[in-house]
Design a protein around this nucleic acid. Structure first.
Lengths: 356, 356
DNA sequence: ATGAAAGCGCTAACAT
DNA sequence: ATGTTAGCGCTTTCAT
């Protein structure tokens, strides 16, 4: 019940605490004999160093914080897993900070992060939390942004570039004969919301199509806003909908179902972010996919570089379209949707994120 | 950049560090005058206590660990959110430990937990990690089990009782005319895998139906095993399938789709665990639902009780059937599945977990 | 009510 | 190569 300290190990091994510390940390030279003695004593005692004592002295805690807007969002859950696994590979434990879509909770977690003296922070920023983010920077805690960036804040980021995927999506819809293509946007306060909207506008413009207000419904990345946005757009007579994230895609799906609309026939729908379940929805959903695993992995690498005093450059990773059955250009889709999907799935694993 | 310490606050306020500490912790008596002076100085300095120094001295860290098998599993993601939010309400930060379905990673995290001297552990145990779990207990770290329990380990748990939901599920299938009802089980090494299987057997027996080997496919709570299990069961001529978790339900769904089977007509399917997206699958899925939010909340309450030295009793929370369209007893379901669902959704919010 | 001082477990100088 | 020791920032006696 009493936890052995480094003193106990020293006593048992007949070495001094200094030597014990040195062998345990692999620092400096130690004789093989004392190494053995220390390791044996530590093993027998079941000694585990007290992380707090170590942090207090050495000023690094062996932990990073991951601050996400909403862990229930499958995109962030997946990202959390990638980050946490990559961090553990570097010997770092991850403090999960889930803002739960609440700026106040975001602030509370920033305070936790600062008290806990974490070695680094991987954050999906929300712009309402500008103040709190500044505090982290002022504290000098190394930080990287994941998925989103905040203009005016000098923090390296790894985000995806919506352009290629969105251009393909709009192209897909256009070649299926649509011209009134509505969009359910994310919040304009987030870089992802803005950029997905802008690339959609650009893609439309590239085909000579302007954007009028009738074509855009403002959402907030939550399912409910997707459902409402779809309803709005449908009432305005759009023939195709592009939803800016997975939760809003689900909302749009729900609205179409509720209205008895056949997606891919009566109305076309393309989502943003892929989820395993989107191959099983009615119908399987065509989506713009982003490379989550790579965002997470490179994010952690970047954070480690920052922790090492480097100034890594921000990176943008490309998105791409995954063509399934929610666009009418696939006439057979309604009849044998899953056969087609099942066949395609045996091919290469895009971004390595599909389940085995 | 240099972080102010309690000494800086003491100097600035003209008080001693002892008084500053007392004011900051609200412990013992302090005069109103010194209170003001200290608080003002702390505010001006932007002082935040160093959590490590505090932990080292006072032997409690203000953190708990949450050890989950796989954060990508939506069930655990939701549970993580509930636990983390409840913990924060008590001023506790949550260390996310994602075993990633890997016993070795589970062990590594247990070591992290022990070094970090967390105040408590909320764990979804995996039986292969018996040894690691024992270490936590030996260390005297307060712990509770969530979702699963491990026979022979004396740790209070909050789990759901599959019986009512599974009995309803089997009853539902039986009254739809089935007799060859197959099950895709979870691993028998987990209490949830075992109990869901046992309650299924009991429900079948209650109706005079025995279980032969042909009716059971062994799964491991992962999607792939659900897909394979469904294939196996289908080949053996079952007419209905019960899948023991949400990922395996998705796998079963996938297999049925790939074979061109119409669920709710050619084959009936009931899953375990509800997910928002299951209202949108083809068809909407009938499931046994468990009260995740309550499991998480009561788990944290129980952990706090343990941390306070109490010996709380384990609790079991009931499951229940959510009847959607994947059983043939709903002849209209195939035609207007979502209309029906949409209507029902406007009713009471079961377990408060459906999105608004 | 407050100050002085010990000490939590550890690492890193500084000795030797 | 190893021992000795100061001190990281804080809480908590023990005095006063």
């Amino acid at each position: 019940m009493h936890k052995p300290t480094i003193k106990d190990v020293a006593a048992r091994s007949g070495m001094s605490v200094g030597t014990v510390s040195r062998v345990l940390n692999g620092s400096q030279a130690t004789s093989e004999a004392s190494r053995q003695a220390v390791l044996e004593a530590a093993g027998e005692l079941g000694y585990l160093p007290n992380a707090h004592a170590r942090s207090l002295r050495s000023d690094h805690s062996g932990t990073i914080a991951l601050l996400v807007p909403d862990i229930r969002n499958p995109f962030f859950a997946e990202l959390a897993r990638v980050v946490e696994t990559a961090a553990l590979d570097y010997g770092l434990a991850t403090l999960l900070c889930n803002a739960d879509e609440d700026a106040a909770q975001f602030d509370r977690y920033v305070e936790v992060i600062r008290r806990q003296r974490v070695d680094g922070v991987a954050m999906i920023p929300i712009s309402e939390a500008h103040r709190a983010i500044d505090r982290v920077i002022d504290d000098g805690i190394p930080m990287v942004f994941l998925d989103r960036h905040v203009p005016g804040i000098e923090v390296p980021s790894v985000v995806s570039d919506p352009e290629p995927g969105v251009a393909q999506a709009v192209g897909r819809l256009l070649s299926a004969g649509h011209s009134r293509i509505g969009i359910i946007t994310g919040p304009m306060s987030s870089s992802t919301g803005r950029e997905r909207f802008q690339t959609y506008c650009a893609a439309m413009a590239a085909h000579g199509l302007g954007i009028d207000d009738q074509l855009v419904a403002n959402g907030d990345f939550q399912e409910e806003s997707g459902a409402q946005g779809a309803a709005l757009l449908l009432d305005r007579g759009v023939t195709a909908i592009f939803a800016s994230d997975s939760l809003m895609s689900m909302g749009a799906l729900r609205t179409c179902h509720a209205r008895g609309l056949r997606i891919g026939a009566d109305i076309d729908l393309i989502g943003f972010d892929d989820l395993p379940v989107f191959t099983l929805t009615d119908p399987p959903l065509t989506v713009v996919d982003q490379p989550i695993a790579e965002i997470g992995r490179r994010g952690v690498d970047m954070l480690l570089a920052r922790m090492g005093g480097e100034q890594p450059d921000s990176v943008r990773l490309p998105t791409r379209l995954i063509d399934r059955s929610s666009t009418r250009g696939m006439p057979d889709a309604r009849r044998q949707p899953h056969q087609a999907e099942a066949t395609r799935r045996t091919g290469s694993q895009p971004h390595g994120k599909e389940r085995p």
